[in-house]
Design a protein around this nucleic acid. Structure first.
Length: 393
DNA sequence: TCTGGGGTCCTAGGACCC
DNA sequence: TCTGGGGTCCTAGGACCC
């Protein structure tokens, strides 16, 4: 999809249509532009630009805070449209999927017809401001590369056998999978184009890049044999992170924000009937360096407080290190179906039913329907500079 | 008073096992 | 005349993507 979040905002709010719009995080002053409307891009706004810098570049830029629920709903509708054409749909991000339309299309020309039909259906289902760029090719790599060639509202076809023409018209980093680091190493080997990459023996490439070298060798020829793998139901990690309103040194301050993230992760785990054995916690310091630890817990967990107690220990070595903390994050891995182990203890059972009730409240009244007393204590202290009223988590 | 938040995959090295 | 070869699980860190 083109300028996904920004287009979604323009679709939802006619006032924003035709205007330069940037979608940012909750607090623009410490955020980046997550998506820029085509009008904003034309005037020099780039994705991932600091919001502060974007505003300086283009004072008329309209900054809108991201609305995750809106985008999730749109993504569901998007994927429903894709499934009208084939069940071989592999979502790779919120706004991007691979579709294997071999059966639906019959032949390559048929695939082009399908692509046009998809664009039409998307416009009907999601609104005319939601445009897509589609690439049609014989491999995922080439289809992706083709889709990036024409924005917005593109349709680029790579007929079978003509893959190298597209590659030779592209930069190395245009190919999904080659980033700036790999590009620099390829330059170091005297390789500056796909033509030069193709001329290298695969052994040169595997000597430098191991198995990734084989992929480079094939990709430079326009080959790609990975099938479209349907479904996205097997997400491997659930994580949340949060940039603090200002860099913090006080461990208690930092840990309370960590707790909020742990509750979010835990709630998603419970919603999906999962529990996690792996817990990772990390911080980003004021200088943007990062540090983190991860650990396997004895038993699978999906209770925010339990996850927090593990996560707190994991980041403890990085607090009070003389560097102030900008961001805290937590992530759950090693996910398994089922809840936490049944407990013999009354206290534990009561906590479970309390969590179920709290989940129900948030489902019905929204995520802000309740919060932890310890977080309120922090807000209190910020305003009154007194001791916190509530100490217990 | 710059630089969000959500992910995946890969490699290296250590502990441990047979 | 010391020290093979197979494997799993785990953590840290990095590259890359939207």
């Amino acid at each position: 999809m083109n300028s996904y979040f920004a287009s979604a905002e323009q679709q939802a709010n006619p006032f924003l249509r035709g205007r330069a719009v940037g979608v940012t995080g909750r607090r623009p002053e410490r955020s980046v532009v997550a998506a820029a409307s085509r009008e904003a891009k034309r005037l020099g706004i780039r994705t991932a630009m600091g919001a502060w810098e974007a505003r300086r570049t283009l004072p008329s830029l309209l900054l809108v805070a991201a609305d995750a629920e809106k985008y999730e709903d749109l993504t569901r509708r998007l994927n429903a449209v894709f499934h009208e054409f084939t069940d071989l749909v592999e979502p790779t991000s919120v706004d991007e999927s691979f579709l294997d339309v071999t059966d639906a299309a019959g032949d390559f020309l048929g695939a082009v017809v399908v692509a046009q039909a998809i664009k039409e259906r998307l416009s009907q289902e999601c609104g005319e401001w939601m445009t897509a760029s589609i690439g049609v090719a014989t491999s995922k790599e080439m289809a992706k590369l083709a889709s990036d060639r024409q924005k917005p509202d593109g349709l680029v076809v790579v007929p079978p056998g003509r893959e190298t023409e597209l590659l030779d018209a592209s930069k190395l980093t245009d190919l999904c999978g080659i980033g700036p680091r790999v590009e620099a190493r390829l330059f170091g080997m005297g390789i500056r184009s796909f033509r030069e990459l193709r001329e290298r023996p695969v052994l040169d490439l595997t000597a430098e890049f191991h198995s990734y070298g084989e992929w480079l060798h094939r990709a430079a020829r326009g080959e790609g044999d990975d099938a479209v793998v349907p479904g996205d139901g097997n997400q491997k990690t659930y994580g949340h992170s949060y940039t603090l309103p200002r860099d913090a040194d006080d461990a208690e301050d930092i840990e309370r924000f960590l707790l909020l993230q742990c509750d979010k992760v835990a709630r998603r785990l419970r919603r999906d009937g999962l529990a996690a054995r792996g817990v990772a916690a990390y911080v980003r310091f004021g200088d943007f360096s990062e540090a983190g630890r991860q650990r396997q817990s004895q038993e699978p967990v999906n209770d925010g407080l339990k996850i927090f107690k593990l996560a707190r220990e994991l980041i403890r070595p990085f607090l009070n290190s003389g560097k102030s903390v900008r961001l805290v994050g937590v992530s759950a891995s090693n996910l398994a179906r089922g809840t936490q182990q049944a407990s013999l203890f009354e206290k534990e059972r009561r906590m479970r039913s309390a969590l179920a009730a709290l989940d129900a409240i948030q489902s019905r009244y929204g995520d802000d329907a309740w919060t932890r007393a310890s977080v309120i204590a922090q807000r209190h202290r910020r305003h009154h500079r007194g001791p916190p009223r509530v100490k217990k988590f």
